[in-house]
Design a protein around this nucleic acid. Structure first.
Lengths: 224, 224
DNA sequence: ACGTCGATTTCGCCA
DNA sequence: TGGCGAAGTCGACGT
């Protein structure tokens, strides 16, 4: 990882054409040769960047200024012209062990598929990721009376999730082998607007308690 | 802008729960107090971050290790525990003049609205961003025969753009004052799959020559 | 403040 | 490799 602070101007030509006027900025060069240019605000997005795989060529222009040309396979080009270098240091970091995530939708789906009875007594799983023409339904199940149930799972339940489930229900209800299909919108947190829309469409909303679901799983594991 | 290279572990609790095991990484603290943690690969996305507005508190734990707690209004929390600091420097960068973009969709729309005849002889503009219940249509116009035309503009024409235009056409064609409405999918580059879908739905595809459109505008300006 | 939409989105999965 | 959907998406703009 190389850290350069420099007064620089930057030109990008690729998916669009863009220009950064001369100003002091941070330039990051990583081990994979990727380059990003950061201003002194906003954590997430660089002002300019070139994603790997790409190659970096260092050169000097007629004024003696450093010019870096970063290029990728697709012909995208990033040109950094440094008028003044204020800092330049390199550091060995090695390969990162990577982020461990918890609480994502996939995990919720896994937990809920194992505990369909949380949704209702006698409910059971038909299958996860039940395929339809417009995409897979998170969970397809059966209630105690043998009726079909489609479950859409989100971390945070918002309107677009209800829309998604509505489309699935419309499609599934055209299948005489499945119809009538009941809808369940399950999320750790459901926004009021989403709840209103769901209820209005006859879709049941269920708030998931992630820790409780996980706790049950942990208990299961403890039996072994 | 503060640059810290440190062997650190990181915990994030907020929209999800995540953990980074102890390893050497770059920690960026910007003037707006935002923090991002970078590994030595990938230009764009940090391993972890906290977007502004947020506050950073520095402390020490019982082992004498630096502990930074970054928090935002929504109760999201980022905790960075540094086992060893390998580099620590601060730099004054000032406010960035910002990126100048060219060739974006908005500009294409502006240019095309001024030159509806590029789409067909005698074509004219009704209005840009024509409002509908499901969102604004990029351009609504009229052909030489007085028929209505809906134009969807993209930099790169892909399937979702065709879907979007299809939804608009369906809606507009329900309006007896406008129907029948013809569809035009205009982009600098149209993916084969998008073209196939559009053609299949009776939507005309037009490849836009950005430089030519801009050239005409430049000529106009030169008259003044 | 909230909803909508674009992004050089990036990123991951699966066919 | 392309298509599709999620992302701690972020960020800008309009109401």
């Amino acid at each position: 990882m190389r850290l350069v602070i420099a007064r620089c101007s930057v030109d990008y030509a690729g998916r669009l054409t863009a220009h950064l006027p001369l100003a002091p900025r941070l330039i990051l060069v990583k081990a994979d040769q990727s380059v990003s240019i950061h201003a002194d605000d906003r954590a997430y997005k660089p002002l300019n960047w070139m994603s790997p795989p790409c190659t970096l060529k260092e050169a000097e222009n007629e004024d003696g200024a450093r010019v870096w040309t970063v290029q990728n396979k697709g012909g995208e080009k990033l040109i950094i012209t440094m008028a003044e270098v204020l800092h330049d240091s390199s550091h060995e970091l090695g390969v990162d062990p990577g982020l461990i995530k918890d609480g994502v939708e996939a995990h919720l789906q896994e937990l809920l598929a194992d505990r369909m009875d949380t949704l209702g007594d006698g409910w059971s799983l038909i299958r996860r990721e039940y395929p339809t023409a417009i995409g897979p339904v998170d969970i397809l199940g059966r209630d105690a009376e043998g009726g079909t149930v489609a479950v859409e799972i989100k971390r945070r339940g918002e309107i677009d999730g209800v829309e998604q489930l509505t489309r699935y229900l419309e499609l599934l209800n055209r299948d005489p082998l499945l119809a009538p299909v009941q809808g369940v919108f399950a999320a750790q947190e459901i926004k009021p607007q989403a709840r209103t829309l769901a209820t209005d469409r006859g879709i049941r909303c269920v708030t998931l308690d992630y820790d409780a679901l996980r706790g049950v799983e942990d208990d299961k594991l403890r039996l072994f």
